[in-house]
């Protein structure tokens, strides 16, 4: 990166500011809320913190992956589930519930692994089908992704019809939840998402050239095809991780990059870092709402993100019209 010190300072300041807000939200969402916390050693507090951390990491991953997808497709409607990772994850989890009906023990603890595998496999299938003669045209990728998504999406209920067990958990999983988050989930997801998102941020130059367009970048001498595959793989892995630990949560990966896109003129790094923190914070708030709005009942995260997100997206559209 070729940055002047002034701009470096600007980026640093904004990261510190955004991280502070994220931490503040995390702390508040841990302390407040229903659940009868009297003393600090109460396990409820710990569970809330882990859930908050998982929510933050999942939101940050999805938003950053969303930036990559919107850059690759050069389209504000692109989102991280476009390659079929969400339907791949649901499909794998559905298969697992069938398997579990033949086993004597519960398979709930294997959901994350199955989801990650399903998401990765679906993305990989889409990428390989769309790739012809060493190039992956964006339109082919888009249409293949739609086909794979619809196919796996259609297969999931078919498989579930044979299951009969575990449907409540599966339902919750498919609509996003941080239930079941423990220390392991919180730390591993946070580490991986921070690591992978940093890789994306430090490849922000690739994002510039993707946005500039493939043909133009070709003539400038940038190896756009390599950069595209690399970023798509990392973004798909991020998406898969978020699905594995927090289920399928719509809207974050679509809304946040649009919300933060005004930072793009300051450089793609800025767009990535702002999306990371905004996405994380947004999901912490959404998770807090999902837990407390209808306490003692809990609603899926997907509903909250859509209820909060859709009106805001409409506002953005109207404002820029």
């Amino acid at each position: 990166m070729n940055l002047s010190t002034g701009r470096l300072k600007q980026i640093f300041n904004s990261i510190v500011f955004q991280a502070s807000i994220a931490i503040l939200c995390l702390v508040l969402s841990t302390i407040f809320g229903y659940g009868y916390v009297v003393d600090p050693s109460d396990p409820v507090l710990r569970i809330r913190l882990f859930r908050g951390l998982v929510a933050f990491s999942a939101g940050a991953s999805l938003a950053t992956a969303g930036v990559v997808f919107q850059s690759v497709f050069r389209n504000p409607m692109a989102e991280p589930y476009l390659l079929g990772s969400s339907s791949g994850a649901s499909f794998a989890v559905a298969v697992l519930t069938i398997v579990s009906s033949y086993l004597s023990f519960s398979t709930i603890s294997f959901y994350p692994a199955a989801a990650l595998f399903g998401a990765a496999a679906a993305s990989f299938v889409t990428l390989s089908i769309a790739r012809t003669n060493g190039r992956t045209p964006v339109l082919k990728l888009l249409l293949t992704g739609i086909a794979v998504s619809f196919f796996l999406g259609a297969m999931t209920p078919v498989i579930l019809a044979f299951s009969g067990k575990d449907l409540y958990t599966v339902f919750f999983f498919m609509n996003g939840t941080t239930q079941g988050a423990g220390l392991f989930e919180a730390l591993s997801l946070l580490t991986f998402s921070a690591l992978l998102c940093s890789i994306i941020a430090f490849n922000s130059r690739s994002i510039d050239y993707l946005l500039l367009g493939e043909e133009r970048s070709y003539h400038i001498g940038f190896e756009i095809e390599k950069a595209k595959m690399f970023l798509l793989l990392i973004a798909s892995f991020l998406t898969g991780l978020s699905v594995a630990f927090a289920g399928i949560i719509g809207f974050v990966g679509l809304l946040i990059p649009n919300l933060t896109k005004s930072n793009l003129s300051k450089g793609a790094f800025h767009w990535v870092s702002t999306s990371f923190f905004a996405g994380g914070t947004f999901l912490v708030i959404a998770d807090f709402s999902a837990r407390n709005l209808f306490f003692p009942r809990e609603v899926p995260l997907n509903s909250i993100t859509a209820i909060l997100g859709a009106p805001y997206l409409i506002y953005l559209v109207r404002k820029n019209a």
Binding site: G213, R216, H219
Partner: peptide
């Protein structure tokens, strides 16, 4: 070099 308005999508 050809003229292509879509390059402005990079918005720098």
């Amino acid at each position: 070099t050809c003229f292509d308005t879509s390059v402005a999508y990079v918005d720098k």
